[in-house]
Each structure stands twice: as structure tokens, then as C-alpha cells.
Amino acid sequence: MTALVVAGLSAREMSRRWTALLLLISLPLWFYLVRRDLTGQSIRMLALGIGWAVSTLTLFVVNASRGVDPRLRLSGASVTSIIGGRLIAMTGAGAMLALGYWALAGFDQDLPHPWAAGLMMLVTAVVAAPFGSLVGALLPRELEGALALLSVCAVQMLADPAGLVAKFMPFWSTREIGTYAVDGGSTDMVWRGLAHAAVVWLFCAGLTLAVFARRLRVARYPEP
């Protein structure tokens, strides 16, 4: 119940920051348009743009709630409902963004496996929400958090997908599923991508919860 209220109000709060929202929604579009002539490049860049946009938006929402969260805890809310509610809202927003760009890519490009392209974008959005939460939990200021996200996304874009560095990045699953969606090949790539995404999601969500459980703990004093 509390988690759903937190989710609904987080979504509403986010929808009112419409200038930031418009800029972030349009961000993947620029990534896509720059290499629109190359299907593979444009689709992968689009997905990474979705990841960057959703994680940055989550970072803003997490940072904007720093003053409210301790008071919600004192009023009786659990850490899980606060963090979980926010994650639900941001995942929902990310999924909608992914759906919109999937439709665009489907109309504009000739994709061998359109469903895999949709899956790639959805998985990217789903991973981006807890990743943005984790960065927000570890870096308390928006500027530092945004720079950290920029660094991670830049490394993810530039690193060799077959190399070790890329595999330790949060959006390696995007590259893996994207390769199948654009170039075809074995469905093993999809499964490897999904497994990587699941591990990253669990790691980011778990660590976010652990950080906030510590930060938002309320001392249980005995009654007088």
C-alpha cells in the first residue's frame, strides 16, 4: 500500500519536472538520429541513451527525496516500501520510454528480430532504474551522480563488448541482446544478456536497499 502511494506520487512528481523530463526523453533520440543510417549503431546507441536517461531521472528523483525519507520512516514507512515504490515508478516510466522508442525503431529501421530490439530497450530501462538509485544512494549530490553516470555510459559505449571491462558495466546486456536483434545469430546471446541484466538488477537493487536501510535506520528506544 505505502509502496504504491510512493510510486504514484513519485511518478506525479517526476511528470511535473517537464523541462528536465523533455530533455531526458529526447536524449535517446539524438543518439539515434546521429547514426540513423547504420541500423546496428543507431539501435545500440538508442538503447544506451534510454539507459542513461532513465538512470539520470532516477538519480534526480532519489536525490530530491532525501529530506522526506527520514520523516516517512518516522511516520512508520518501511525502507523497502520507500525504495521499492520509487523503483516501481521509475521502472514504469522507463518501460514506457522503451516502448515509445521501440515503436519508432520498428517503423524507421529494418530489423531482423524486432522483438529482441524491444526486449533490449526494455531490459535497459529495467536495469537503469536500480542503477540510477544506487548511484543516487552512493553520491548525494546531483552533479556528482550525473557525472558518474556519464562516465559509466561512456565506458559502456566505447569498451569492446567482448572484453572484460564491458562485462563489468551495467548495460552489457544491452549490447548482447542488441547484437542478436540487429545482426542475428544464436539466441544464447539473448539468454546471456538476460542473465547479466538479472545479476546487475539484483546487485543494484540489493545494494541500494542496504545503503538506505543503514541511512534511514531509526533507533528503537525503549518506552519510558
Binding site: M1, V5, L9, V68, S75
Partner: peptide, 8 residues
Amino acid sequence: TLFGAAAG
């Protein structure tokens, strides 16, 4: 609504 939900 938000603080009320936290308090049940």
C-alpha cells in the same frame, strides 16, 4: 496522502 500512507 504520502505521510498518511506511511502511517497506515
